[in-house]
Design a protein around this nucleic acid. Structure first.
Lengths: 248, 248
DNA sequence: CGTAAAGCCTGACGCTGCGTCAGGGTCAAC
DNA sequence: GTTGACCCTGACGCAGCGTCAGGCTTTACG
């Protein structure tokens, strides 16, 4: 360890800050931290200034910034580290949330398996899917991108007034069903509701004729109870009532 | 989309599950998901079974398992997915905690900068360092791995009874200093404390003679106030008192 | 039935942030 | 002067694909 203006050889600097020699080679090539001198034999010689720069680099690296951004930040005269860190923090928060969702998905999968002794792939799948992209809206949680695309196609193919009409009728029908929870399933009124239900379902499904995969996916989602709690969609209770009336 | 036993071509399967064709190529080469047939022209043809396998793969991938482990898991007859997930969950929790530490480090750095308007590299550095490995003990927060190794060497070189003796004397001396906060710095008692302090410091530092770098690092840490709040180490107040007594 | 468009094939390089040789010079001490 | 510790450059490898390039297949349309 000499004590000139360039006290460190590469191995010494590496040991001092706790990184590998290879890492310093890498940073040199990237222009992140370059030795301020070389020995006659070509050895890299680092000074105190280089040491400080390396500290800054490692600090920012530790916060998750990519190396090239670190270089650009430190090299630009008016580098705005704070702004970069704000961006970084946002990404970090999203990542944390994502990991937490995954962790809870794993947890519930393991719970289920412990209690039932059975390994249910469907359950893991839905849990993982929910974890994977529950940042988006409802649709994105329960359908694949391709299915989303199919939905979009259908919307384009179907006349808007038909879509509106069907949605209004569903809203009205669901409202009527929910308005009469104590209605006798065997009564003529109940039978009428069943008839309207079946007709409307038929009318709706007709639009999906060209996409049999979607019908299947929707069915699976209803079975899985994915839409419980969403007022605009038929709920398990609604379906159960119609079923009782149909059988009565 | 034909409807034989191998309904999907690669692009269709990719669209259906929402991954890229390249990804399926990759999985094919890795042996993760291989098409159960090929067309005469060499096109990959996937069946329902392949589709299910792909779902499993994507599920596990979503949970963060590396592809090769997924392959090994699915290929082994008695694959224990649950055990793998338990391991995965532990790693995940650690990662989450780490990210949370980093996020709060960024937060405090930004706070400081907003309030003071100054960008303090030392502060960011200590915050980041704390974030980087605050799972460990105090030592690891303030010294580099190489320095840690030097500390270890010193401990090995120095007789244990000497270490104990020095630590006991420091404890006693600090207790006396703190017990007499209102002692006149010019008093003979204060002078005596200064003499004991200097002797003890000399005795301590003698052991570090072979590691000048460590002395420097320790000095920097004291200057940075890294050890404030740690009772067993001299505090700024203790040092200030001794200084006053020395100058009196 | 022919042709064009869309889709598929293999192969190869690129990215991030280094780890890990290989094959060779340099530096310090004995 | 020689040994051993250190250093150099160059190159490949890792995960998990993205992204061409150059060429074949399949399908839809006329």
């Amino acid at each position: 360890m000499n004590t000139g203006p360039h006290p460190y050889r590469i191995g010494e600097l590496a040991a001092r800050v706790g990184v590998s020699v290879r890492t310093l080679h890498h940073y040199d090539r990237l222009g992140l931290v370059q030795p301020s001198a070389r020995s006659e034999g070509g050895y890299r010689l680092y000074g105190e200034h280089d040491f400080l720069r390396l500290q800054q680099v490692l600090t920012l690296r530790c916060l998750g910034l990519p190396l090239r951004r670190i270089r650009d930040l430190l090299d630009s005269e008016d580098f705005d580290v704070a702004a970069s860190l704000r961006v970084q923090r946002i990404a970090l928060r999203e990542r944390i949330e994502e990991l937490q969702r995954i962790e809870s998905a794993i947890g519930s999968a393991l719970d289920t398996q412990e209690r039932s002794g059975v390994w249910d792939w469907d359950l893991v799948l839905t849990a993982a899917a929910a974890a994977g992209n529950s940042g988006g809206n409802i649709m994105e949680r329960y359908y694949t991108p391709e299915q989303m695309a199919q939905f979009a196609e259908l919307r384009a193919e179907t006349p808007p007034e038909e879509i509106e009409a069907v949605e209004r009728e569903w809203t009205a029908l669901l409202a009527e069903v929910r308005a009469s929870p104590s209605l006798d399933p065997a009564s003529p009124e109940a039978k009428a509701l069943v008839a309207r239900w079946d007709a409307l379902q038929e009318r709706t499904m007709a639009h999906f004729a060209s996409k049999p995969g979607l019908v299947e996916a929707i069915g699976r989602n209803y079975e899985a109870g994915s839409f419980e709690g969403m007022d605009r969609a038929p709920q398990a209770a609604d379906i159960a009532f119609i079923q009782r009336a149909r059988e009565a």
